[in-house]
């Protein structure tokens, strides 16, 4: 019976020691590694969930940014359209202004050209008239024409104001210009009549200018008396031009 109680006690202590040893060397380490693996799995799942949340958030952000880009694109396009429309309108306005300017310039140029052409044609007409007049004058009697122009010249001198006539008379030397050479007798008579018209005794010099076509003109250094077809045609031409400008 003593052995039995000792056996009972030894078995009790033996089992308690066994529980402690197994708990220390077996149960706790194995449970710990299981728990560590579970914790790691939980961490991985949490991390995966966090990554998934982050990815979802990033996706949402990307979608939001994409929507923002779309909105920005629409805005930029609208702005570009608006600027293009404004530029187009401005270009149209500028083009219209330039066209108007060009048109005005063209109109002015055309008017100037027309005016120039008219002037040229008038000059040509004058020249033609002079040519025609010269040819007609060439068919006239030279002496009669000279007499006529001499009479017109004395009339013009007589029509001059007295002070002008006195100025001409005081000139000293007076040049008498004719379209054709004057014979010495005719020269003396012309000089005598002009001197009588001026009321002074003057010395005359004679010069020939075929451009006069026909006529006699009196010239001093300070004053001239026009009396030729050339002068008449020039005046007529000037009057015609003046009338056309008006």
């Amino acid at each position: 019976m003593t052995t039995s109680w000792w056996t009972f006690g030894l078995q009790t202590v033996n089992f308690l020691i066994l529980v402690w040893l197994l708990s220390h060397f077996f149960w706790r380490p194995v449970a710990a590694v299981i728990e560590r693996r579970r914790q790691m799995a939980r961490d991985l799942l949490d991390q995966a969930q966090a990554d998934r949340d982050a990815a979802a958030q990033a996706l949402e952000e990307a979608r939001r940014r994409s929507a923002g880009f779309e909105e920005e694109r629409e805005k930029i396009l609208a702005e570009a359209w608006r600027e293009a429309s404004e530029a187009r309108s401005a270009a149209l306005v500028q083009a219209e202004a330039e066209i108007a300017t060009l048109r005005e310039q063209s109109r002015t140029a055309i008017a100037q050209e027309e005016e120039e052409a008219a002037r040229v044609w008038t000059a040509r007409a004058g020249e033609l008239a002079l040519t025609v007049a010269a040819r007609l004058a060439a068919r006239l009697d030279g002496a009669a024409v000279t007499e006529t122009f001499l009479r017109w010249l004395t009339d013009k001198i007589a029509a001059l104001p007295a002070d002008v006539r006195s100025t001409l008379g005081a000139a000293g030397e007076v040049e008498i210009v004719s379209a054709a050479p004057l014979e010495p007798g005719l020269q003396r008579r012309v000089g005598a009549e002009i001197g009588a018209a001026l009321g002074a005794s003057l010395s005359f010099s004679y010069r020939i200018e075929p451009d006069l076509i026909a006529g006699l003109e009196l010239r001093t250094p300070h004053l001239s008396v026009r009396n030729s077809w050339r002068a008449d045609l020039t005046q007529i031409l000037a009057e015609i031009n003046h009338d056309e400008r008006i």
Binding site: W6, T7, L10, N14, F15, L18, F25, F26, V30
Partner: peptide, 25 residues
């Protein structure tokens, strides 16, 4: 202290369990 056969076998079993548990874990 008298040591009976069950105690000796229990010791052997305990030693085996602890050694096995230690080696495995």
């Amino acid at each position: 202290i008298p040591i009976g056969a069950p105690v000796v076998v229990s010791w052997a079993i305990s030693a085996g369990l602890v050694a096995s548990g230690y080696l495995l874990a």
